[in-house]
């Protein structure tokens, strides 16, 4: 009786382990779902250099707010990590242009649009980070309401800074320049 149970266990275990050899292994390709890769519970686990640099920026901001960083140190560190973040953003965009637009969810496009539109723009310097200023902190000109610059030549939709194609109709920004 026990021996039978033992043989059943043995057969089951060996079948489980040897089956791939008999059947020939199936290559488990990486699924291309957009959520694949966001399987971490903590954003700090992301391996994206952009996110790491952005997190460092947030931390520097927080450390200054809690009084741990002096203003000079804050300035220097902020510059370094902002540069790193920008470099990473540009690298990602360059790759993104090759693969095609990764953002396919219309709801997200709307969010991004709204977010990009929320800031005021300077006629010469483009969108400004400060949302409540009247004058551009870079050149001093009066800021205008969003939508004034960098619009799509075809449909008039605002194009996020650095965007190469209109997120709404797909017209190339290059086309805008040529006209």
């Amino acid at each position: 009786m026990e021996l039978v149970a033992g043989i059943v266990v043995a057969v089951a275990a060996l079948a489980l382990v040897l089956e791939p050899l008999v059947r020939g292994g199936v290559d488990q390709g990486v699924a291309a779902s957009p959520d694949e890769g966001i399987d971490f519970a903590d954003i700090q686990e992301s391996e994206s250099p952009k996110i790491q640099a952005l997190l460092a920026l947030k931390e520097i901001e927080f450390d200054r707010a809690t009084g741990k960083l002096s203003d000079e140190d804050y300035g220097a560190l902020k510059k370094r990590y902002a540069d790193a973040a920008l470099a990473a953003i540009k690298a990602e965009e360059a790759a993104g242009a090759e693969v095609g637009d990764a953002v396919d969810d219309p709801a997200e496009a709307a969010i991004r649009k709204a977010r990009a539109n929320s800031g005021m723009s300077c006629p010469t310097c483009g969108p400004r980070p400060a949302t409540d200023s009247t004058f551009c902190s870079n050149c001093g000109k009066q800021l205008v309401a969003p939508g004034g610059t960098d619009s799509c030549a075809s449909c008039g939709e605002r194009i996020p800074p650095g965007g190469k194609f209109c997120a709404s109709c797909g017209t190339s920004v290059g086309a805008l320049v040529e006209r």
């Binding site: 920008l86 800031g119 483009g126 980070p129 551009c136 870079n138 650095g162």
Partner: peptide, 11 residues
Amino acid sequence: ADDAARLEAEL
């Protein structure tokens, strides 16, 4: 300015 705005959006 472009870069600054982009950083803000990403943050």
